[in-house]
Design a protein around this nucleic acid. Structure first.
Lengths: 125, 125
DNA sequence: GGTCTTGGTATCCAGACGGTTACCGACCTT
DNA sequence: AAGGTCGGTAACCGTCTGGATACCAAGACC
C-alpha cells in the first residue's frame, strides 16, 4: 500500500543501547517490535524479516501481549486476500518518548555502564 | 548517623504507578530498592522494613545485582559493630531521572492503561 | 551462659519465560 | 492438482526467576 522503505534486514546487527540498558519493556522482544511499527503499520510477515531470529511463536506472543495491553492494534483485512496488520495505538506511540529517554540515558552513561559490568566490583554473573 | 526519617513502613501500601508501568528496571525489586536509597545510604536491616514482603534472599539478590552493575555500592563498617551500608553510586543516582520520566508517563496515561487492561480487546492473561 | 540483632546463606520448589521443531488451513499461483 | 505464501498453532522442554522455609556465625547485651 504505502511504499515505505522495508524494515531493516536484521535488527540484531545494529544492536542499539538496549543491550546494556537496565530497563526493560514488556517481554523480550516487545521493544524491538515497537520500533518496527514506528513508521506505520506492518504485516506479520514484514515483522518476521528484521526479527528473523525470533520464532513465530515468540513473535505472536509478544504481539498478543502488546495488543492485550493496548499498545498495538491488530487488524485483519480480507480484501483481496488475507492481510493482518499490526499498528501502534496512540497509547503505544506515546510510549516511544519515555523509551527514547531511557535510550538517551544509556547513551550518555555508556562508558560507566561498560565499566561497571566489566571492571567493576565483581564480574561474576 | 544522620537522623533522616526512617523508611516508610511498607512500600506496598502506596503502590505507585509502577504497578501498571510496562517498563521494568533490573529484577523484580530493583526499582523499589533504588527508591529506598534515594535520600541516602541505608543498612540492610533498614531496607528490610519497607520491603517486608521481600525475602532476605531476594533482597540480597537484588542488591548484588545492582552492585554488580554499578548502581549501588556496598560498604562494610566494623567500627563499633558490624554495619553494612548500601548507597546509590552517581550512576545509580542518574538512573532516577529516566525512571521518574517513565513514572510520569504512566501517571499521564493511567486511564488508558487501566482501560486497555480491563475492558480492552481481551482480558485474558 | 543465653539471647538478640545483624547480615546474611542453604535448600527446595513452582511457575514463568523462552527456544525448537513440527504442523496447520486458507488462499493464490502455476 | 501441486506448490508457495500468509498467519499462525501445538507439543515439548530446558532455564531462569522468585518464593518459602530453615539455618548460621559474629558480636553486643543481659
Amino acid at each position: 500500500m504505502t511504499p515505505r522503505p522495508p524494515l531493516p534486514a536484521d535488527l540484531f546487527d545494529e544492536l542499539c543501547p538496549s543491550s546494556l540498558l537496565p530497563f526493560r519493556f514488556g517481554d523480550k522482544w516487545a521493544s524491538m517490535v515497537l520500533r518496527c511499527l514506528d513508521d506505520g503499520p506492518r504485516r506479520y510477515s514484514e515483522l518476521r524479516v528484521p526479527l528473523s531470529r525470533v520464532t513465530p511463536k515468540a513473535l505472536t506472543q509478544s504481539l498478543r501481549g502488546l495488543e492485550r495491553n493496548g499498545f498495538v492494534s491488530r487488524t485483519v483485512h480480507a480484501d483481496p486476500k488475507l492481510r493482518v496488520e499490526y499498528a501502534l495505538t496512540p497509547l503505544g506511540r506515546s510510549l516511544l518518548e519515555p523509551m527514547a529517554a531511557a535510550c538517551r540515558w544509556a547513551a550518555e552513561h555508556w562508558d560507566e555502564l561498560l565499566d561497571a559490568r566489566d571492571g567493576g566490583i565483581s564480574s561474576s554473573g
